[in-house]
Amino acid sequence: MSMIAFMAYKVNFFLIIIGPALVFFFIKYNLWSAIYSLKEGIQIQGYDFSEMINYQVWVLIVSLLSQGFFSSQLAEDIRLGRISSYLIYPFQFWQFHLASFLGFQTIQMAVAGFTILILFGSDLVQVPTWEILTSGLVMSFVVGLIWFSFQFLIGLSAFWLEETWVLRVILITVTQFLSGSILPLEFFPLWAKDLLSMTPFPYMTHVPVKIFMGAYEGSLPILVGILLLWLGIISLVCGLMWRSGLKRYSAAGM
């Protein structure tokens, strides 16, 4: 049902789902082109121009695969008392939203798959092996779950806040900067990298990108374990917020 809803309006679909990631990629492509054209053959923090573009292409793919979902509908439904029907149906509220997210992810997978095929035909990206591609896709899916739980958490804040879009903007901005979406994490000082490794942010973009590039040196099972741990922590916070929020819920407008 959510897949049908997402695709119901073609312009909206393009603007919301594909547009921002593509625009962001072209801005970064032009920016890095300008920087690298200053001096021929230059390497910055170990990245030459083609490696940087390769990195940024995979950032685009990872963001399409894992960071496209937004919870604005949930926040609005809570504020306007529209979640009441779902409180009566015999399933858990998060299950409904997870199903909606999975529907959305299916579309995103198709969009990302199409984008990957086009990019493989260009010289912008190095084509990975099937094994690397599969690892990257699995990792991106788990990252997508973390992104969904962050979004769900922000949506739940509507039990307390009138407007939640500010939180969403903060999450997007902070994630893009701290996850290596704008600058690869090699550009950060060592102490900042150490500090970041204790947060979920590096796993949101930098690590999956490195996996797609075949440059990740750590153990994949341990990585999945860390991601699941973060997923568990955020889900726990969501559970507490849900229980506490429901006590405040007045089902206004019903």
Binding site: S84, L87, K247, Y249, A251, M254
Partner: peptide, 13 residues
């Protein structure tokens, strides 16, 4: 009335 209904159906606490 509606508040009572909401409580009886578990929508509000």
């Amino acid at each position: 009335k509606t508040t009572l209904m909401k409580m009886l159906t578990g929508i509000i606490v």
